[in-house]
Simulated assay, not measured.
Amino acid sequence: MITSLFEECVSNQPVTILLDCLDGMFSDDVIRTLGQQLDTLREDGSDIVVLSSMADHQLHGHLQEYLPHMDVVVEIERPEISRREAIIRNRLETVGGDISGLTPEEYDIKRLARETDQFGTKDLQRLMRRLAATATTTAGTAPPLDESDIVSVIKQVNTERVEKLVDEETLTNVDVPEVTFDDVGGHEEAKRRLLEQVEQALTHEDIGAKMGVEFGSGILLHGPPGTGKTMLVRALANELDYTFIPVNSSLLKRNAQQKIPGLFYRAQRNAPTILFFDEFDLLGGERGNLGEDTTVNTLLTELDGVEQLNQVMVIAATNRPKSLDPALLRPGRFDYHLRSIAPKPAYRRIFLKLIRVIFHLPRM
């Protein structure tokens, strides 16, 4: 099919060929043949232009091999967080004059931009049309819409999106956590040290440069199960008003080499971000077999990237810190360690009392 298509184009040149959704429509054999045909056209000096489009920024196998056959490669990205903020603000300003209460001053635009981290421009436009419809009909939520109403509509539009990121199955939704440090009983020292380290690394880089040191962008949070490590990190993201990307390590492990770069890419585009790996020992175990070697090497590549992580803090939680590969713990990686311990007895008594009150349990 491909060979006959190119033969026909050669007979009718000049011709422009558009191969849309290349990564979804063609097999590896067809893509290999396409590359060979492109080389032939170039050698023959044919007056034929071939345009290819691919949906996935993470290209593997023959798709990766196909790129060298192209003269120009252009990446058209989804809008990053600052562009999403501008788009949402602009659309709300546009409709605000006609729809009462639907104005940017009424909402936390940064939060809405984070909630739409997987949205392209068309998705954002569809969201705004849905909001306008919801705010002007009695069938939806009665106006004025509050922020939780908008977040509900965002979730509806998100479930209807045709395009999905490769790494979605490893993530819960990117969000701005509701939990605060006030909700986390005890851990006062851990709260203080987490805040200090993240602010130092992400907001005082100029000081580090003057001192000739790098603060590092990785924190290892370790301690027994049930001591509140995940809740601490969620509260930290809320306190700092950072994007929070939680990663399910057990799911990620299945295809880590391909998915880890996408996680760091996503974190960078929604910065400032806390990228949180729970049960990190499932990914960062000491190297010794091919699977673990590949995963750890991929993590090291992203942590030591050619481009330094900018406004991204990587926090890893584990119950088994001694099982981690030593290379991950070297300077510039996860070299800041913080132990999470069980709350003091006073906090545990308060917690147990609340549980008894809530569930009407008798005293033990």
Rank of each mutant, 00 (worst) to 15 (best):
T203L: 13
I31F: 02
P225T: 13
I109S: 06
G332N: 09
T116H: 09
V50K: 10
P143R: 01
E178P: 00
E8C: 04
D23K: 03
D29E: 15
L303C: 00
T136I: 12
D20T: 01
I17H: 06
S250G: 11
A135N: 12
V151C: 10
P225I: 13
E292C: 00
I207T: 13
A86C: 01
E199R: 15
F280H: 05
F359Q: 09
D206K: 14
F277I: 07
P104Q: 02
I31G: 01
D278P: 10
A190S: 13
D23R: 03
A317I: 10
Q58K: 14
E147Y: 03
P225F: 07
L324G: 04
R91Q: 14
V157I: 15
I109M: 10
V157A: 10
A235C: 05
N238L: 05
V296L: 05
D304I: 00
H337F: 12
I17Y: 07
Y66I: 11
H204A: 11
V157T: 14
D183N: 15
A201N: 13
A133W: 12
R254C: 05
P345S: 08
A113I: 08
S27L: 05
P362K: 13
R254P: 01
G291A: 10
L195A: 07
S27V: 06
T301G: 04
T301D: 06
H62M: 10
K164P: 02
T180V: 06
D149I: 01
V312D: 07
V179C: 06
D149W: 04
M70I: 03
I154K: 02
A86D: 11
Q197R: 15
N255M: 09
S323A: 14
G226E: 11
V213K: 01
